[in-house]
Amino acid sequence: MKTHSTNYFNTFIETAPDTKVVKGTVPPPKGNKTIAERQYELIASAPYQYTSDDIIFQVYAERKDLMPDEYPAARTVFFSRGQACLRASPLAKNYGYGIHSNSEGKVALYGMETDEYQKFVKDDNTKKVQAMKSSK
């Protein structure tokens, strides 16, 4: 079974060009946890601890109420099909966060107002990609 990955390496996902915010904003609670809330909690609480694949699968597993012992088999099936990468994350599209993937593919968030965000944008040794636009 072919495995698809969403991981980037030495790459910075810049905020979407049509984002309406001017700084990194914590996704507000809305009853049931949104994808944005779940992604934010995972990445912000443990910068450079998880890969994009880890984040995307964990959010999927939580939303499907999977038990931890179901994770290995479910992850294999989940990544047997292509999945949207963090360029489609609401954090980069709507909440003003750039997402940096280091040389190991581990990710961290940087608000667009921060010096670190600007450093990644200007760094010629880091590949840059933009988050997907929120609207067409």
Rank of each mutant, 00 (worst) to 15 (best):
Y50G: 08
V21R: 06
A36V: 00
S5W: 03
G31R: 04
G82N: 09
A36R: 04
Y50L: 09
D18F: 07
K133W: 14
S80V: 00
I43V: 13
T19P: 05
R63Q: 15
A84T: 01
F12I: 00
S45P: 06
T25A: 09
A36M: 03
H4T: 06
R63H: 09
Q58A: 10
K2S: 13
K64V: 05
D18P: 13
F120H: 15
A108E: 09
S135H: 12
F9L: 13
G111I: 03
S103V: 04
V26P: 01
N32I: 12
Q39I: 02
C85I: 02
Y71K: 07
Y48K: 08
N7W: 00
L91R: 00
K2H: 11
S101Y: 10
H4C: 13
K119W: 07
Q39V: 00
P29Q: 14
G111W: 06
F57Y: 08
F12Q: 11
P28W: 07
G96H: 03
F9W: 03
M1A: 14
P90G: 12
V129C: 15
F57Q: 12
V129D: 07
G111L: 01
L91H: 04
C85S: 15
K136F: 14
F120M: 15
Q83G: 03
T15Q: 12
I35T: 13
T19K: 06
N32H: 10
F120C: 13
R81T: 02
D18S: 12
L91S: 06
E70V: 05
D69S: 11
T34R: 02
D53N: 06
D124V: 09
Y71H: 15
K2N: 12
L109H: 03
A73W: 00
T3I: 15
T11Y: 00
E14P: 00
P68V: 07
S52G: 11
